[in-house]
């Protein structure tokens, strides 16, 4: 594998977006890019990552390779990333380490790190990326982040309901309750503020607040978030990158006992 990001912070943002959700991950590299999936220890949150060749300045993968890494270690190396530096990932044919080369031609500087790869025997879940959903919402990731931060302070459960009137996020704590209603809008001046809802039926789902606080860490990937809900199935929270690919989170709902 030889894959070069013209801006090293792209890869840093991707890794930082889920490094607190899962501890390790297998990156599966092929001609069609880098794909990964990891599930958290409690088996409630699943992270999917897609970095197609369009995200790179140059991308080459001569034969399919799996790169297993501890995310905490990789994240440490990526602290060196900045917008002035490119980052090339190299993996040899017999992979036992990942080489990261940061280059800042302007400053006549280069940095090289090596990361030991790990053998991860993770069972993969079969996720249908075309999974039909009853409700799809596209909204500002900034707005979503603020709403999650504000409401999750009040309760460890976070409820989402969508009707034709809009999307309602609500929490019911022991001492306080809160509710945020957002209605579809079109902001011609700044389309990242748009909110659109397409739905075939209403939904009402509850999730554990702590996972939502993990998910919003990915908001730096995109100023938009796509939410997909169906009754009694995991929800999908997806951040798509400008150049293709992105990071998605499948979150299992909570049920009335």
């Amino acid at each position: 594998l030889e894959a070069k990001f013209d801006d090293s912070t792209i890869f840093k943002k991707i890794i930082d977006s889920f490094k607190d959700s899962v501890t390790q991950i297998n990156f599966v590299c092929s001609e069609s890019g880098i794909e990964a999936q990891a599930i958290d220890d409690s088996r409630v949150l699943l992270v999917t990552v897609s970095i197609p060749p369009s995200c790179f300045e140059s991308y080459r993968c001569d034969r399919p390779t799996t790169i297993g890494v501890y995310l905490a270690s990789l994240a440490k190396l990526l602290k060196s990333a900045n917008t002035n530096s490119s980052l090339t990932l190299y993996v040899a044919d017999k992979p036992d380490e990942l080489l990261l080369l940061f280059e800042e031609p302007k400053n006549q500087k280069s940095m090289e790190y090596k990361l030991k790869l790990v053998d991860i025997t993770a069972d993969m879940l079969e996720v249908d990326s075309d999974m039909k959903s009853d409700v799809t919402v596209e909204m500002s990731s900034v707005e979503f982040t603020k709403t999650v931060r504000d409401l999750t302070q009040l309760s460890d459960s976070f409820t989402v309901s969508v009707t034709k009137d809009g999307i309602v996020f609500s929490v019911q704590g022991d001492t306080a309750q809160g509710k945020v209603l957002l209605q579809p809008r079109e902001d011609l001046a700044d389309e990242s503020n748009n909110l659109s809802i397409s739905m075939s039926k209403t939904i009402d789902l509850s999730f554990a607040s702590k996972y939502l606080l993990d998910i919003i860490k990915a908001a730096s990937i995109s100023n938009k978030i796509f939410l997909k809900f169906s009754d009694d199935t995991p929800a999908l929270f997806e951040f798509k990158m400008e150049k293709g690919g992105g990071v998605g989170f499948y979150l299992a709902p909570k049920y009335d006992d």
Binding site: R43, L45, M124, D257
Partner: peptide, 14 residues
């Protein structure tokens, strides 16, 4: 009282 489900119940293992 809400009970947390897991993803196993929804996705097949590969």
């Amino acid at each position: 009282k809400l009970r947390q489900s897991t993803l196993n119940a929804f996705f097949n293992k590969n």
